[in-house]
Design a protein around this nucleic acid. Structure first.
Lengths: 232, 232
DNA sequence: CGCGCTCTTGTCAATAATTGGCAGTAGGGC
DNA sequence: GCCCTACTGCCAATTATTGACAAGAGCGCG
């Protein structure tokens, strides 16, 4: 057991054991002498951990540098709230429900001083587009994307021609007022986009992605963005 | 700088730097040889950190044992990410920056097992509207809204007629492709909306809101919504 | 006040870990 | 086949770590 490992272990003990934690406990737990524990505490403190030590009492972990505080600035709260409201307004029911829940959790995790700001956020999202009817289960599709599983779709292109394709769904893009499914098309062996309102049927084929090539995906989405913005 | 300290530092780097992180970067950052970085990675892995290393690519932190699982469901994460991306795409620079920071903090506070999902979120937002030029300082306006202070604006209505008004700004509404400032107009003693791109000048008058009447505000926004949706 | 508990700090020499450099293997995109 | 980068083995010089013993200090308690 290396010292580094022990230091990590000590932090974990601080995180899990009910305070106060006595040095002797830590010594027993790590199988090291008391003297070493005191040296370790010193090391942890020098690394930014705030550990309160009270003689005759024990140690209490006050601030853990590994845990980023969920402290959002006013602007960040507004960005989060606005974004979630946007999602509430545009997304499929499952995702909208998730946005609602996320908003609740966010509210619960904020200190009271910032909570009213969440209620009173200055930004609201309104969207009155008549979105095309989407017949497929978008929630299920998103899950396929997340779990990187291929799906089979029935698709009608802009001319009305129908086809059945096996694709790896990569992401759903809110392309202005339509939802577009970005995919790797197994038929064409290339990236293809499909409008969600033109997909008629969807089922998983059970096939998994081949090893992911992240740079390729990045490039694809970057290209998507460039292509789109050149039109704006 | 002790090795233990360096290991902590490496974890922080993994949490902060955008993946992939190359060993050379870590070596430069920690001021240590490449060989030592590889040894350190090995040490971190033996401590429970799951670090994906791909030759020719770099490292990616997959699972961080120090982070307690935070309770956002996959759908909620997607809602948050999509919303923030939307904000990144449409908002003024200050708010967009805030959205970016919020995304970083969210990423940092997520257990690493869920983090890849944030990167790989299946939803993207694209927006190619040509938004009208807004000449006023939107960030300052949002601050006035937050702090509930009255402002004086120069406004040109749809006929081009100009006027100066003292208003209590209540909220900015993303009304399709335009930004609208919902306000209580001190001149008309009623709720009024102003398009941000038609506001020419803006300054605070220093006057504070009278005690807020939340129900009225709620009713106002509800009405705004009803009015808009009836058009859809 | 004295007493017990516990954090805290110092010093030492034996022991163990760390380090950089170099050389080489391997995997994946192009 | 080339380039980039992750990975591994080896070695000797350097550096850190460890336990033991000793002593100081804060705090609650009777």
């Amino acid at each position: 057991m290396s010292r580094s490992h022990r230091l990590m272990q000590l932090m974990q003990l601080f995180r899990t054991l009910p305070p106060p934690v006595r040095a002797q406990t830590l010594a027993d737990e790590t199988g090291v002498s008391l003297r070493s524990v005191y040296r370790d505490i010193e090391a942890l403190r020098s690394m930014g951990a705030v550990i309160d030590g009270a003689a005759g009492y024990g140690y209490t972990l006050i601030d853990d540098p590994a845990l980023p505080p969920m402290s959002f600035s006013p602007d960040e709260i507004e960005a989060l709230v606005l974004g979630l409201r946007e999602v509430l307004a545009v997304a499929d029911p499952v995702l909208a429900g998730a946005a609602h829940n996320a908003l609740s959790k966010l509210r619960a995790s904020l200190p009271a001083s910032k909570r009213h700001q969440l209620e009173h956020a200055s930004l609201h999202a309104k969207r009155f587009h008549h979105r095309p009817e989407i017949s497929i289960d978008v929630a299920a599709l998103r899950q396929s994307i997340r779990e990187e599983r291929a799906v089979r779709i029935d698709y009608a292109d802009h001319t009305g021609a129908k086809s059945t394709r096996d694709i790896y769904p990569l992401g759903i893009v809110f392309f202005e007022s339509t939802l577009v499914l970005a995919s790797w098309c197994l038929l064409r062996q290339d990236f293809r986009s499909f409008r969600l309102d033109r997909i008629r049927f969807l089922k998983e084929t059970g096939e998994n992605f081949r090893p992911k090539r992240v740079p390729l995906l990045r490039a694809f989405f970057a290209g998507f963005k460039a292509e789109g913005e050149s039109r704006g």
